[in-house]
């Protein structure tokens, strides 16, 4: 398989803040529901999270929605500080991966990330008894004490590669590998693909004049690109 640089373009003009991406992500990646106590403590895990900001006063109130997955930076501040190299930038896919089996739970990477995308398992994740039946068999369930974050559903990439190999193809097509959030978005606000592949839609979308990255001046080179609100 060739190298790829997977990235995402999120059109803020289309995002309605419906939250389907959050739910689909939680379902796809076996993110446990938090109890009311955990939620009150601010320990809800949302790999994909919609950040809402409202500005102004009536009658000129404006609200903006910003879906925020892991930025999958090309210059990630988190990988530098991990003492055991449990988080790493994959040269093959551009995805910043997380090795749950090696993480010692020091939370240094969480402090280093300026976007707040790293989530820590403060206690053992629990599902109410019958709900374990809906766990996705393709994704590991994390134990307490380790850090987790959005992985661009890279288990789907592995499935897509397997499927391609089975069918005798040597390329994974754009539609074969889409993370849960981009798949479920009802307005098609999220586009996902290989930023380096000129045939993929993200490649073109990333060059839209409305494009910007979050906190670009920090030099993290995020691969999640936003298109400014406004036509």
């Amino acid at each position: 398989m060739d190298r790829a640089r997977y990235g995402m373009v999120i059109d803020l003009e289309r995002c309605t803040g419906c939250g389907a991406c959050e739910t689909a992500c939680a379902q796809e990646n076996n993110i446990p529901p938090s109890t009311p106590e955990e939620a009150a403590q601010g320990r809800t895990k949302s790999w994909m999270k919609i950040l809402v900001q409202s500005e102004g006063e009536m009658p000129d109130v404006e609200v903006s929605y910003l879906p925020r997955p892991c930025m999958q930076c090309d210059n990630p501040p988190c990988t530098r500080v991990c003492p055991v190299h449990a988080t790493y930038l994959s040269a093959e896919t551009g995805i910043v991966g997380q090795l749950y089996g090696r993480c010692i739970g020091c939370r240094y990477c969480a402090n280093a990330c300026p976007y707040g995308v790293k989530y820590f398992n403060w206690q053992r994740p629990q599902w109410p008894q019958p709900m374990e039946e809906m766990l996705n068999p393709d994704v590991a369930v994390r134990y307490k004490g380790v850090i987790e974050k959005c992985t661009f559903c890279h288990h789907r990439l592995q499935l897509a590669r397997d499927q391609a190999a089975f069918e005798g193809r040597d390329q994974v097509r754009e539609s074969d590998y889409q993370p849960a959030c981009s798949e479920v978005c009802p307005t098609r606000a999220i586009t996902f693909g290989d930023l380096d592949n000129p045939l993929h839609e993200v490649h073109r979308a990333a060059q839209d004049p409305r494009a910007f990255r979050l906190m670009e001046d920090l030099g993290t080179q995020p691969k999640v690109i936003y298109l400014r609100k406004g036509k």
């Binding site: 939250g19 959050e22 739910t23």
Partner: peptide, 13 residues
């Protein structure tokens, strides 16, 4: 057209 809302996506729950 392939999209879902938050409630529909939580059907399994």
């Amino acid at each position: 057209r392939g999209g879902l809302c938050r409630l529909g996506a939580s059907a399994l729950q």
